[in-house]
């Protein structure tokens, strides 16, 4: 699947920008320094929107497309922000055969967003994840650090309402 691109307004602060520029000053100029800078930038901002990548491209004097190509190649980089509550659905084999796809579909329907997206109010985001090692509880979903096992489609709304 192609990486989703955030359509939410960028909320970066002056402090974050200063931190980013410091990181670039420390790592810039060397061959192959794009990766560590992107990793640190993601630590600072939580994701890598066009505003952040443009700052990196301009400051490093590297084409924006080169930065973007790297950020879409590696799965650890995210182009969309995570919400206050990140809802993650395990799509590992056990969860999948126990109906995780239906659970995921219901979550998308309730929140009105797709996986790798964040709600307008910044509250919820959805992630599809690989096996989290709780196959006995399949299908499994998590909300931040809370784990929910043997989830049925009918329970989804109740679970999410706890985080309103």
């Amino acid at each position: 699947m192609q990486k989703r691109i955030s359509t939410l307004p960028f909320q970066g602060t002056k402090e974050q920008q200063e931190q980013l520029f410091k990181v670039i000053d420390e790592n810039g100029g060397k061959n192959g320094s794009v990766m560590p800078i992107l990793q640190k930038a993601q630590e600072i901002y939580g994701y890598l929107p066009i505003e952040v990548q443009t700052m990196i491209a301009e400051k490093m004097d590297v084409p924006l497309e080169e930065i973007y190509g790297v950020s879409t190649f590696y799965s650890l980089f995210a182009l969309t922000p995570k919400g206050k509550y990140n809802v993650s659905v395990c799509m590992g084999t056990a969860c999948y055969v126990k109906g995780a796809a239906d659970v995921l579909g219901k979550i998308c329907e309730v929140l009105g967003i797709q996986p790798e997206e964040c709600t307008q109010d910044g509250k919820f985001s959805i992630t599809e994840c690989r096996c989290i090692g709780a196959c006995g509880l399949a299908p499994v979903m998590t909300v931040n650090d809370d784990v929910y096992g043997r989830v049925s489609v009918s329970e989804v709304e109740d679970i999410l309402s706890k985080y309103e």
Binding site: Q2, P63, L64, E65, E66, Y68, G69, T72, F73
Partner: peptide, 14 residues
């Protein structure tokens, strides 16, 4: 100029 490149990976590469 370098405004085009390979984005995403594997089957999704464009």
């Amino acid at each position: 100029v370098a405004v085009i490149g390979a984005n995403n990976r594997g089957f999704d590469t464009q």
